[in-house]
Each structure stands twice: as structure tokens, then as C-alpha cells.
Computed example of a mutant assay.
Amino acid sequence: MNRRVVLSWSSGKDSAWALYVLRRQPDTEVVGLLTTVNEVAGRVSMHAVRQELVEAQAAAANLLLWPVPLPSPCSNDAYEERMSQALHALRQEGITHIAFGDLYLEDVRAYRERQLAGTGIEPLFPLWTSRPETPRLARRMLDAGLRAVVTAVDPHHLPERLVGRPYDAAVLAELPEGVDPCGERGEFHTFCFAGPMFAGAIPVQVGETVCRDGFWFADLVPRP
């Protein structure tokens, strides 16, 4: 029996690569992307990418997008209530699994597992690896044709100049020692605009760069 999977979608490279990996598994049917959205700003939570760009990603992947609107500010109780509602709706649609693009953070994985316990939906971690393996994973993504933009950086770990840059070998070479090349610990975030998981590239350009909530963000806008 095939697994009917929804992929937790942040808009970044790890989510996109997880989609590519899942689609190469014969017993797995990816039926949609699940994205939390700030209902006030109309942007993806944490990454702050415009919702219209995530909709473009879903269209390029030929998948349904299931947005989960979150209030702003959003308490943990409010988040868990909205997610519980979303999970119930997904179960009614016959979804058996939710996949996550997490790489190696055990506490994050344990939280996902607790959140899904008793829902009838099981978690999947198709990219799960170890910290020493992430440089190789980053190169594998780029070698396969994945293309992304660095949309946010934590200035405690990275210089502002990297925000808005292509996620490529040059950026990887500039990462300070100790920074994960996949940004698994929140050092940076990306938006994936092209790769083998999409039917075509999503035209975007880098707009204004702002400092907000302790991060530097590059506002991506659709390119005409």
C-alpha cells in the first residue's frame, strides 16, 4: 500500500530536496505541501517568503498547497491548536504520513514525533543524516541542479553581505567555521527557485534587505 504523504514546506532548499528524494521512492505518493503562513503579513513563517512565491513553487511541483494560517504574534498554544486542526483535516483526506526536511537535530525530531502521536499520521524524515555529512549533502543538492537564494541570515553567525546571494559553492566557501552548510541550526534560510523537483524555474528577484526580529531578510519578489 502506497504512503500518501504531505511534505512540510518551508520554501527552502531542504524542503525542496526532500520532495525530490520522496518522489524517487516507489511506495510513496506526495500529494501536497503543508506551509504555515503568517496570516497578517501573508508570508511563510520563519522564512518570511511571500505566500504567492510558495504558491508558485507548488504549481511548479504540480502539487496542492495546504496553507496553515497563524496569528501574529503566535503563541505556542495557538500554533499547536492550528496545527491540530490541520492534521485532523489531512487525516480526513486520507493522508498517512507527513515528511519533514530535518537533517540531524534530535530535539526537533522528537517534537515532531510528539506532535503527531495519536493523530493517525506518521512522520517521515527522508533526509535524516549526521552533522559531518551535511557538507556532502549541500554539494549533492547543487550538483543535481538545485538553485536557491539566501533569504535570511542570523548576524550572530553570518555577515549581512550573504543575504540575497545565490546559495552556491561560493557562499559555501565563505561560511565561517562552525556554521552548518545546510543552515540546520538556523544560521540562514533559503528559497528554492529551481531544481529537479520543479517542472520549471520560478522567476524571482531580490528586493529590499531589512533587519527584523534579529535577522537580516532579503525580500524576494516575482520577476516580471
Score class of each variant (00 low, 15 high):
1 M>V: 07
2 N>F: 14
2 N>K: 14
4 R>V: 15
8 S>F: 13
16 A>G: 05
18 A>Q: 00
20 Y>S: 14
22 L>W: 04
27 D>R: 10
28 T>S: 07
29 E>C: 00
32 G>K: 03
33 L>Y: 14
35 T>A: 12
36 T>W: 11
37 V>Q: 01
37 V>W: 04
39 E>G: 01
40 V>D: 15
42 G>K: 01
42 G>E: 09
42 G>M: 03
44 V>Y: 13
46 M>K: 08
48 A>I: 08
48 A>S: 00
49 V>G: 13
50 R>F: 01
52 E>K: 05
53 L>N: 03
53 L>V: 05
60 A>Q: 00
62 N>A: 14
64 L>D: 14
68 V>C: 03
69 P>C: 09
73 P>F: 14
73 P>H: 12
74 C>G: 05
74 C>M: 05
75 S>D: 06
75 S>K: 12
81 E>N: 07
83 M>C: 02
84 S>E: 13
86 A>K: 09
89 A>L: 10
90 L>Y: 07
91 R>L: 13
91 R>I: 06
92 Q>W: 09
95 I>P: 06
96 T>P: 11
97 H>A: 03
98 I>C: 11
99 A>M: 05
105 L>E: 06
105 L>T: 05
105 L>R: 03
109 R>W: 01
112 R>P: 02
113 E>D: 11
114 R>E: 12
114 R>Q: 10
114 R>I: 01
117 A>S: 15
123 P>W: 05
128 W>L: 09
129 T>P: 02
129 T>V: 03
130 S>L: 13
132 P>C: 07
135 P>I: 05
135 P>D: 04
141 M>K: 02
142 L>R: 06
143 D>L: 08
144 A>Q: 10
145 G>Q: 02
145 G>F: 14
146 L>F: 15
146 L>Q: 01
146 L>W: 07
147 R>E: 15
148 A>Y: 07
150 V>N: 08
153 V>L: 12
161 R>V: 04
162 L>C: 09
163 V>D: 09
165 R>D: 03
167 Y>G: 00
167 Y>K: 10
169 A>C: 03
170 A>P: 00
173 A>W: 10
173 A>S: 15
174 E>A: 10
175 L>G: 09
177 E>R: 14
177 E>M: 11
178 G>A: 11
179 V>E: 11
182 C>I: 07
189 H>L: 04
189 H>I: 00
190 T>N: 06
191 F>D: 06
191 F>R: 00
194 A>M: 04
200 G>S: 15
201 A>M: 09
205 Q>R: 15
207 G>S: 14
209 T>Y: 04
211 C>I: 11
211 C>M: 09
211 C>E: 12
215 F>S: 02
216 W>T: 11
220 L>R: 10
223 R>M: 08
223 R>H: 10
